[in-house]
Each structure stands twice: as structure tokens, then as C-alpha cells.
Design a protein around this nucleic acid. Structure first.
Lengths: 346, 346
DNA sequence: TTGAAAGCGCTAACAT
DNA sequence: ATGTTAGCGCTTTCAA
């Protein structure tokens, strides 16, 4: 079933293709009568101009891609949502590339997206959160960035100067820590997150610093690294609670998933949150209001993250001035999972 | 910065473009020595063939689109995940189009996707869940389907014969109802979901039938329609509980979100789930294991839904035989939010 | 095994 | 205001 082309329209309307193109793009004045005639034919055939042909010439596709590690983690759909919202205003459509946290897939997608000549790539998670990203992986991204605007969201690649949009996770972690200190907690632990990812490292560092600034310490045994999942949170929390000699009165978690796992572990042992132990999450994902008790957490302005990333790409593609870095400040959201430190019993 | 083309490669390798094309696509034998020479030049320039030009000729883009109402609702990322997984195997990349449940956006995307000549469209949610979908909206989809394979996931359009993949929600609802009956419940309510959406209607109907088959009834006041959100679930549950004369001992919810809202409302009133009241969700989204108590719910085989949809598109595009309809059977997942009916107190 | 050339469907000078 | 024509970067006959 042959697609109708601009030529078919031109022939039937008895004009040249350029005239049809003109009415299609409104790129030059066309006499009202001929415009009408052309429009009639277009509508009759429900003609849809071939965007591929157009993109081939104009060297722009109206397409942006977002590379994410795991769309199933509610943090990413939120960022996507914000990005998509902005993209629509700017006339972009979105490729969503889920890598399942696999480096090779990231590389694959990078290649495909370049071949498809996307107008921009938003990179979030994966290699840009590695404390030590292998140079080959860095280079791949750099090569892509030579021809396509790339913006890194909530991550970075060492010794490079990519466009970045991120929320200052260190500030967020400090905020959460201070919140607990203010509630009278002195025995604070940190759980979750792989120890080779910057998201984890930055937070631990900030927690430690905030504590030390006030003559408190983060005990080594109270830093429990692991995955970012609910299950991991539960497991790590259990490890913490196993040591009945030394029990923290409050636990900071790398994200909301692990925080929820932590709450579950605590409840399963008959501990009440926050009466017996306070738990703080990170991300303010929709989950945080779904659990009981609702999670005290740190919001990352997820929608803005996506929004600014798209805006940046738009600016670059249109030769508008841009700054290379946009930093968003996280905010603490106090809900029900944190409370005053329990009074010591002995 | 000009992109290098196949011509540049040809010139530098001292061969014709057709030969370069041959090694690129492995479409005809090329002498090993010249192939090597060409590969060298390709790698030297990190040449990326322009997929647009190729697609223009081959009339296939290697791109599928998924139109979803709300990527922020964890049900959809799960379906996407399954689809994306399968898509990768088949060499497709994914457009993700978030409509925020807006008909106009759906229409917009339909147009854009046709212009972009995607190889298939997966439609989920939105108009295909309307009990009375306006004919114009139906027609739009039909027109798209004339040139592009369209598959409807968990929905339908009246008087049409689209390709469909869906899980039988009526069976799921019946399963959940029977589960409650078996636990001794006789006073069962249903909450959540807009009353003009098929997801809601089908479930209510199935609940009613299951009940009536066993001489039980679904009281009219115990059907509470509303949104699909946590907040809606909470509000509707509160309405139910406000009538202290007649209180159900079990509540079926249109999805996990509303179920969680219901649990919250119950807890806020000091009711224990499931001791005082049983609550059952629908979807088995990641949320269902995140809450306390973990949700008894109905799994919709989300990944399969996506997987089969992509598979179908692939089959259609490759002239393989396909059936028009794939039905998946939901399964009941019993967790902690449902239990034996409380003993009557008076 | 390789090359020449036509064409995919459109836009954008350049003419008229 | 409208038409002619040369590409955009690739694949694919058809010849050699």
C-alpha cells in the first residue's frame, strides 16, 4: 500500500511540489485559493508528510533520547515526566532507552541514537554515577557529544565538561542528617547503595561531615552498603539490628526504596517507627506517601531535573546562550517516619 | 561540523559508495582486502551511517512507539519494561509518549508517529479504556492502523478488530472476590476507578456476578467510583467507613494505588488490616510489596503484556502469521492485607 | 567483485 | 506567487 507523497498531492492539486511544501510548512505566502485547493487534496488523502525525508534535509529530527538504568524505579519516570512535559512544548518526541544498568546496552544505545540523529541525549544513572568510570566508557559519551548535545542528569564523568543538571545530593544528605540531630539523635546509621556509585559516596561523605562538625561520629559498622532495592534495605537494616549491643536510633537511607525496606525490617522485629527508631529516605518518590508511616525524605525536584535537561538541549540546538551546569537544591520533607530520639532506657 | 558520509568513506578508501554500503550491511560479498581497507577508514572517522537516509529507502525505521496515559503510575513502566526487553531482541528502539490522559495529546502523538513512520504503535490506557469512546477518536486510531501496525494493550475500541493483548480483568476480579468469600466475608465493597472506564466497569461487573452466583449481593452504596490515585482510595474508603451502620468487612480496589489509600484510611481510623477489614488491590505493582501490610492483589503479567505486544508488531511487519488477540490470565497473589472475616460482635 | 546511476520524499535556492 | 531543480545520505538494480 503505497504512501502518498508530496508529488501525488502536487499532481492532483495541479501545482508544483514546492507550493505544496510551502503550504505544509507555511514558509512563504501562497495565494488563498491555491492553498485551499491544496489543503483539500491533502485532507482527502489524509496525507502525512514523511518526517524522515524532512529530517534528512533539515538535519534535525525533533527527537530527544533519555537513557535510564531502570524505568521501573519510580525516580526515573518522574524525571521522564518532567522532561516529556517540557519536550512537548518544544516540539520534541522522546526515545526512552532502558539499559537495565548494563554498560554494554548503554553503549549500544549511544550508537543507535547517533545513527538516528537524535537532537539530544539525556543521560541519567549508569556509568555517570560510577566513582571510577572506565575511560573507554567516558570516551564513548564524549564522542557522542561531539555531534549531539548530551546532558548528564544527577551524575558526572571525571575530567570532562559536559552539560549537567543535578540536584546537590550532599546538601540533601546534610539536611536530613541535621534534621535527625535536631531531633536529639546521636546514634545515626546509613544504609543502602553500592559503594562504588557516586550517589552513595556523596551522601555518606555529607552525613559524616555533618555529624563530625558537631562532634558526632558515623560508626564504621553503621555504614551498610548494598543495592538500592526494598529487599536490600530490609537486609541491611536487619544486619544493623542484629547487633543488639549497639543500635542506632535513626537511620538514613540512600533512597526511598531502601528506606521502605528498613521500615519493614524494623516492624518485623516489633519496633515502631518513629517511636523506637527514625528512618529517613531520599528522592521523595510517590512511594514515600504510600507507606505507613509516610516517609520523611529529601526531594530531588525530579520534574525540574527533566525539564531543565530538555531546556538545555533546546538552547544548545538553537544557538542560545547556556550555562554548563544547573544545580538544584534538594529540600527536606518531614513526614511521619522521623521523630524525637527515644529516651535511653538504661 | 559536517557529518562524514558514505561518500567520504568511499573516496578515502578509493572504492565506490556501493561497496561501502555492502560492507556496512553485509549485503553482498566483498573482497577481504578491500573490506579491510574500508573498515579502516570507517573506524578512523568513527563513521555512523545516517539511519534517516536508510529508513527513507527501506521503509522501516526500527522504531516502535508506546502511548501511555501516565508513566508515573508504576503499572506502565512495568509494561514498558517488558516491551523494551523484547524490542531490544528484535532490534527496535522505543518512543515513549506520555499523554497525561489527554485525548488531544493522544491525537497529536498519533499524527507525529505516523509522520515519523514508526514500525508500530502500542496503545495502552486512554481512549481505549473508555466505555463510550467518541467515534472520531476511534477513527483516528483506525486511520493510523491503515499504515502502521497498532496493538491495543488492556483495552479495546468498539466495533473494530484491532490487534489486542490483554489480561482478563474480569477473571482477576472474580478471583479476588472468591478469595474473600472463601475467607468468610459476606459484606464486600468495591472502590475506586472512574465509572466510564472499562477497567472499572468490567471489574465491578465481575465482582457482582461472583457474589450473586453465591446468593450474595453488592450493595449499591458499597460501590464507590472515583480516580485511580492513592488519595482517591483514601477518600472513598473514608466515605465507606463513615456509614457506621453498614460496614463492609472486605474491600476490593480497582488498583493498587487505591488499595493503599484504603489501607491508610482504615489505619487512620484505628482499624487493623486485615484483622478488622480485608483489602485487596489489583495490578501487583511494585508498590504492593512496599506497603505494610503487603497487599493481596491480582497480577496482570505486566511484562508479558509488553512483550507480546512487541512480538505481535514484529510478526506483522515480517509477514508472519499472527492471531489478533492474546489473552493473559491474571493470578491472585495472596499476601497480608486479606484475612478471615472478623466475627460479628453483636 | 565492483561501479554507475536512479531514486526514497522532502526542502530550499534560484528562476520566472 | 509559483515552478524547476539540485541535493540530503543512503540502498539497490543493472552493468561491467
Amino acid at each position: 500500500m503505497k504512501n502518498t507523497t508530496i508529488y501525488d498531492i502536487a499532481r492532483e492539486a495541479e501545482v508544483s511540489v514546492s507550493t505544496v511544501s510551502r503550504v505544509l510548512n507555511d514558509t512563504a505566502p501562497v495565494k488563498a485559493s491555491t492553498r485551499d485547493k491544496i489543503m483539500k487534496v491533502i485532507e482527502k488523502h489524509k496525507f502525512q508528510p514523511n518526517a524522515l525525508a524532512r529530517s534528512l534535509i533539515k538535519k534535525e529530527t525533533g527527537t530527544i533520547a533519555m537513557i535510564v538504568p531502570d524505568i521501573t524505579n519510580p525516580f526515573f519516570p518522574e524525571v521522564f515526566y518532567g522532561a516529556n512535559q517540557e519536550a512537548r512544548d518544544k516540539g520534541y518526541t522522546f526515545f526512552l532507552c532502558n539499559t537495565s544498568g548494563d554498560d554494554d546496552r548503554e553503549s549500544e544505545y549511544l550508537t543507535i541514537l547517533r545513527e538516528k540523529r537524535v537532537d539530544g541525549i539525556i543521560f541519567i544513572g549508569g556509568r555517570i554515577n560510577l566513582a571510577n568510570c572506565p575511560p573507554e566508557l567516558v570516551q564513548e559519551v564524549q564522542e557522542a557529544a561531539e555531534t549531539i548535545p548530551v546532558v548528564l542528569v544527577n551524575g558526572n564523568l571525571a575530567k570532562t565538561k559536559f552539560h549537567r543538571v543535578y540536584s546537590d545530593e550532599a546538601v540533601g544528605a546534610a539536611l536530613a542528617t541535621q534534621h535527625l540531630i535536631d531531633l536529639g539523635h546521636r546514634d545515626i546509621a546509613f544504609i543502602g547503595g553500592l559503594d562504588f556509585m557516586t550517589t552513595t559516596i556523596q551522601k555518606v561523605k555529607a552525613v559524616k561531615k555533618t555529624l563530625e562538625d558537631q562532634q558526632l561520629t558515623l560508626r564504621k559498622e553503621w555504614i551498610q552498603y548494598g543495592e538500592f532495592s526494598i529487599q536490600a534495605g530490609r537486609d541491611l537494616m536487619n544486619k544493623l539490628l542484629d547487633d543488639s549491643e549497639h543500635r542506632p536510633t535513626a537511620v538514613l537511607c540512600v533512597n526511598d526504596f531502601t528506606a521502605i525496606g528498613a521500615i519493614k525490617a524494623a516492624s518485623e522485629r516489633g519496633l515502631h517507627v518513629p517511636e523506637d527508631i527514625s528512618i529517613v529516605g531520599f528522592d521523595d518518590s510517590p512511594l514515600s506517601t504510600a507507606v505507613i508511616p509516610e516517609l520523611t525524605t529529601v526531594t530531588q525536584n525530579t520534574h525540574e531535573l527533566g525539564k531543565y535537561a530538555v531546556e538545555r538541549i533546546f538552547q544548545i540546538n538553537n544557538g542560545m546562550p547556556t550555562k554548563r551546569t544547573t544545580v538544584l537544591t534538594p529540600k527536606l520533607i518531614v513526614r511521619q517516619s522521623s521523630g524525637p530520639a527515644p529516651v535511653k532506657r538504661k
